[in-house]
Structure formats: structure tokens, C-alpha cells
Design a binder for these strands. Structure first.
Lengths: 152, 152
DNA sequence: AAACAACTGCAATTGGTTTGCAATTGAGCG
DNA sequence: CGCTCAATTGCAAACCAATTGCAGTTGTTT
């Protein structure tokens, strides 16, 4: 059954479920990976690798290991990569059975993030695909503006 | 790769018009800047600084100068910055009186680009702004897929 | 033509990300 | 439980887009 998109931020997956997904793909459940998943499941918004590294108990994991883990998790579909245009990739945990596709509204002053759970472009996307003969069309979309707190 | 012509590419501005815009803002019309504008006006799709550099007659301009020029031109509103998610910024000339806002459909195999001249999100954008109390909301949107030629 | 600020080339630097390699460790197996 | 091996990790070096300091050059103004 499909999980409603708006449940994303509220549904925090158990660590055991997450590691189970690793095991299911015959990947090792290592200390660093558990630490990374632990961090991600506590954070509702996309994080840069450096942020993950900074938040993690010191010495649990090397920064390079985080980069490698994020590649793995992305390939497995466990995290989704987002690009806020500031040169650093951000990652967010994806719920089981979800493809993680959604968007964000980002404050350009304080970098605060609002999750936008709907996607308005599914239909437009297929129209564009058809019109141009493209297949497997996806899109990246983020909104930018100034949040209420930063307007004063 | 081959792409259909579109309205935007036909509005190729005269070099004299472009330099005139520089002059109007009391910026210097230098050799490197003319060379850069010359390259941009011949190319209908966004280019990376490195691509501009590669296409330019050798020795006409340093790569660092291109970076600086693109910042200037962007501030002046003469070029628009686009991000295709591959780590390199791309730039496209903006017509006079235009804000340059539009989107692209990018082939993930051959990197070919189709210009999408409409924008479907103006209304959704203001709805999102209102709902979250944000001001000055904009968005970045690009489509990705596999072009007809690359499907075989 | 002189004068000055804007601009450029070059080299060094930054910041995010990747990679080579030797050492470590998780998972299956006896 | 300990053994074995491939997967994984830490560390340092490398990479790449982008930025910057500085000294020399050039466009524009007077």
C-alpha cells in the first residue's frame, strides 16, 4: 500500500528497518553506516555530507566514508539527492515504497527549509516527454524565497 | 545532437546592442568581453565557462576572466545562470526586456538540450509563497530524460 | 595625451567530492 | 568460536569548478 506523501516528515523509520534494507541487499551493516542512518532519521530536511559529519559523534566515521555511503544509499534508493544550488549535495532519507520525489521551499537568507510534499508536474512532465519524444523523463524543482522570520 | 529550433534562438541580438548595454552601465567594453558575448550569441543553449573558453579563439581571454565576466553579466541581467546538476554552472544570453526565466529538457545520455519556453509554475509559485508566508519566491526547474536519438 | 579606475592574466587558493591503497571488519562457514 | 575473504574504512593525495590577490594592462574620461 502506498504511503501518503504528506506522511513523509512524520514517519521516522526504525533503525532496524533501515539496516534490514542493507542486509537485504547483502551489504554490510557497519558502524559508520549505522551512525549515518541514525543521523538521517533524526533530521527531517536534506543534509549535506558535511552537516552529517558535524552532527555525528566525533570519530565515528570519516567524511570520505559518508560520501561513499551516500552513493551506496542513493543507488539503493534509500536516500534521495537534492540540489539547492549552493554547490553542496543534500540527502534525505526515503520511506519504504516511496520514491522520495518531492520539492522544497528554501529561504535564501537563513537557509531554512520547508518540505513541499505535493508535486504539480506529473502531467506536465509527460506532456513534455511526449512532445519531444523523450523517455524516462523526470524533473528537479526547488523554490526559493524569503521566509517570514527573515522578512523583518 | 540535433534539436528543433525555437523562438528564443531566433532573437539573436546584435553585438553592438550587447556592448551598448555594457556601455549604458558604464562598464568597459574590452576584448575579452566582446569575445565572450560573441560566443554566447552564437549558441542557443546554456554553456559552461569551460565550454565558452574552449570555443573561443585561443588566447583571446583567460578562464578566470570568463568567470568574472559571467558574474558581471549575471548581475546586469544580461545572462541567466542555469544548473543542470552536474556541478558546472551554465549561462545563456537574455534578450532585452526579458527576465530569461525558462526551463530545459536535458538528455542524460548525450547531454543534448531542448529549450522549454513556457513556465507552468507562476501560479503555483504564488500559492506556495502565500501558504508559507514567503516573499520574493522564485524557482529552479529542469527536466531530464532520454532523447529520441539516444533511445536506440 | 595624461590619469585613473576598471579590467586582465597568472598563479595560488578554496571547497566539495573522488580515489588509491593499506589496514580493518562484518558475515558466512566450518 | 575462530577462520577466511571480500567489503569497507581511514587517511592522504588528487580532482575539478570556482574564487581571489596582485601586479601589470587597457578603456574611458578629461
Amino acid at each position: 500500500m502506498k504511503v501518503p506523501a504528506h506522511a513523509r516528515a512524520h514517519k521516522r523509520q526504525e533503525l532496524s528497518v533501515l539496516t534490514g534494507r542493507l542486509r537485504g541487499q547483502s551489504r554490510k551493516i557497519t558502524g559508520p553506516r549505522q551512525a549515518i542512518l541514525e543521523v538521517l532519521r533524526r533530521h527531517p530536511h536534506p543534509m549535506t555530507n558535511r552537516e552529517i559529519f558535524a552532527v555525528m559523534p566525533k570519530g565515528r566515521c570519516d567524511l570520505a566514508t559518508i560520501y561513499r555511503a551516500m552513493h551506496l544509499l542513493e543507488e539503493m534508493g534509500m536516500v534521495k539527492r537534492f540540489d539547492f544550488g549552493d554547490g553542496a549535495a543534500r540527502f534525505e532519507l526515503v520511506g519504504e515504497g516511496d520514491d522520495g520525489h518531492h520539492h522544497h521551499l528554501i529561504c535564501t537568507r537563513c537557509a531554512g527549509v520547508v518540505e513541499i510534499d505535493e508535486c504539480f508536474l506529473r502531467e506536465i512532465e509527460s506532456r513534455i516527454a511526449a512532445r519531444n519524444g523523450f523517455k524516462a523523463v523526470t524533473h528537479k524543482l526547488e523554490f526559493f524565497g524569503i521566509c517570514p522570520a527573515c522578512q523583518r
